[in-house]
Amino acid sequence: MLFFSQLVNGLQLGSIYAMIALGYSMVYGIIMLLNFAHGDVLMAGGFIALFSINAGLSPVLAVSLAIGGCVCLSVLIEKVAYSPLRAAPRISLLITAIGVSLLLQNLAQLFFSASAHSFPANSILPMKNYSISGVNISLTSIVTILTAIVSMAALTYLVQRTKIGKAMRAVSEDAEAAQLMGVNVNRVISFTFAAGAALAGVGSILYCCRYPLVAPTMGALPGLKAFVAAVFGGIGSIPGAMAGGFAIGLFETLVTALGFSTWADGIVFGILILVLLVKPTGIMGRSMMEKV
């Protein structure tokens, strides 16, 4: 029974990581950037939701505002900080992303103080536990897992079945060729950031419901874990990010449940390294041929 409740627990954490990991993976697939600011977009979503609820707005409105805020912020970051660097070396882009991440954290610290604010998780998802044949499952877990499945299905539909999805795939395959075929590359890149940020917005609400604290540096840890998840699944691959997210969430819960919680982060990285040694491009990553 303990096993099943831990399994649900792991799936809940994994769903959150998977949703954040999708943002990393999509952006990487399209402009080969490890977007370090993604975790801080998550933090912004948490703060927007917190203030909206404290201002007395309805939960639905608060959640929508948080998602919308994440999308606007992410597109703004892309336009201001990343788009001038299209032709620059990739490491400059990476350092810019680190700079944006530090900027967001410190702005949040300046405006909202460094201390953690408690998040009214109850007003979004009431604390309720269901007992299914002896296994205790909280409403939050159920909603989190279902939301993740629905958003991933929606994303898969978007990428595989719509016109903009086709354009996204084309740009990630070969941006220059896509441009010659009439794809507006800049718009596709902005759209990718927006889609990733929307998932991060949903993820931030679910993360705050699990760990009800909002702080300027709260994005760093889930950001890093989701980033690991994206690499684990093969960065740039959407199903890979989902699989990686669930895998990392389950590992972490398992290790913690076995009583090695202080070792958890180390073990997660150890498994990642082992996987990369066996399969250097992650579980579902494609290996690229290189020409001289």
Binding site: T96, L102, L103, N106
Partner: peptide, 22 residues
């Protein structure tokens, strides 16, 4: 004080945008 790290991050972004090679 509190503006220090903000300046630091802005400097980082600024230098990278204006002179990507460092």
């Amino acid at each position: 004080n509190e503006y220090r790290m903000i300046l630091y991050s802005l400097l980082l972004i600024g230098v990278m945008i204006l002179k990507p090679s460092g």
